[in-house]
Amino acid sequence: MLPENVFFSPYESKNPGNKALNKTIIIKNRLEEIDILAEEAGEFCNTAGIEKRDALRIRLILEELIVNTISYGYTDESEHEISVDLNKNGEQVEITIKEDSVPFDPFQAEPPDLESPLEERKTGGHGIHLVKNLSESLIYHSADNINTTTITFLTGKTG
C-alpha cells in the first residue's frame, strides 16, 4: 500500500508504445523528509524503467533543489508542504517542484568559479551548478506566493 503522501498514476501516452508515468510526492519542509523523497523518487524510476545511472541523477537534482529550499527558504517555524511531480513521457522526465518559501530563483545564483585555486574555492555553491549541468532545461517562476520550478531531464543520454 502506498503512503498517504504519494499519488501514483500510470497511464498510456497518446504515442503508441510510449508508456507515460506520473507520480506526485508531497513532503514537509524538514530535512528528515528527504529520505522519503529519495525513496519515492527511486520507486518512480524503477516503475518507469529508468536506468540506475539516470535515477541517481534525478535524485541528485531533486535533493539539491529541495535541501536548498528547506535549509534557506523559510523565515518562519511553521510547517509547509513541498510538492514534487514526476512525469515520464518517452525519454523525457519532467520534474515540477511547488513550494511556498521565500521567492528565489536558484538558476540566477552566481555559478562557482571552477578555475579558482583551492584557497579561493568555496565549500558550497556546487549544488545548483550540478542541477544545471544534469538537466536539459530549467524554468522558475513565482506567482501568488507559490514558487514553481520545472526541470526537464533526458534519460538514456551518454556521458
Binding site: L60, E64, V67, L118, R121, T123, H126, L130
Partner: peptide, 20 residues
Amino acid sequence: VRYIDSTGLGILIGALKRVR
C-alpha cells in the same frame, strides 16, 4: 560510495583546505 551530493563535495573541499 554510490551517491554523493554537494554537501559531501563541500566536506571534501573543506578537508583538503585544512590539510594543505
